[in-house]
Each structure stands twice: as structure tokens, then as C-alpha cells.
Amino acid sequence: MSQKEVQNMQMIQELEIEMMADMYNRLTAACHKKCIPPVYGDPEIAKGEAVCIDRCVAKFLDIHERIGKKLGQLSMQDEALLKK
């Protein structure tokens, strides 16, 4: 591989990590908002809240993947259309 290729690969990898971190931050904010009511009588996570968080994380990642797939499909279609 040329130096240019190595450099570009590093840039892409860094971007992937950065986007992963961004997605993680959004996930955290979304699930906190959806599962933790704004009443703080107790510093512990309630049972129901814990279950909610677990499902929320799973669902968020699931949707992230599904949207990614669809987005990939759509951009492939677009590219194919542009080539015509």
C-alpha cells in the first residue's frame, strides 16, 4: 500500500471512531430521556427503569443498523440511476 493509501485508511478509521462516539452520545441522551422520569427522590435506578434502559439500548442499535442498511440500499439505487 502507498503512503497515501495508509493515510486515507487512518483518516477513515478515525472518522469511524468519531462517528461511533457521536452515536453513543446520542444513544445515551435518548435513552436517558425516554427511561428516566425527571423526579429524583432516589439515586438508585428503579427496576422498571433498568429494563427500559436495556431495551432502549438494544432497540437503538437495532434501528441504527436497519437505517444503515436502508440508507446503503438507497444510495446504491441513486448511484445506479446516476450512471444511466
Binding site: T28, H32, I36, P43, E44, I45, I53
Partner: peptide, 11 residues
């Protein structure tokens, strides 16, 4: 604050 940290840890 305490709950926020615990929630983040769990996530």
C-alpha cells in the same frame, strides 16, 4: 447526578 452516572454505566 448519582443516578445519571449509574444510568451511563449501565448503558
Amino acid at each position: 447526578l448519582e443516578k445519571f452516572l449509574k444510568v451511563n454505566q449501565r448503558i
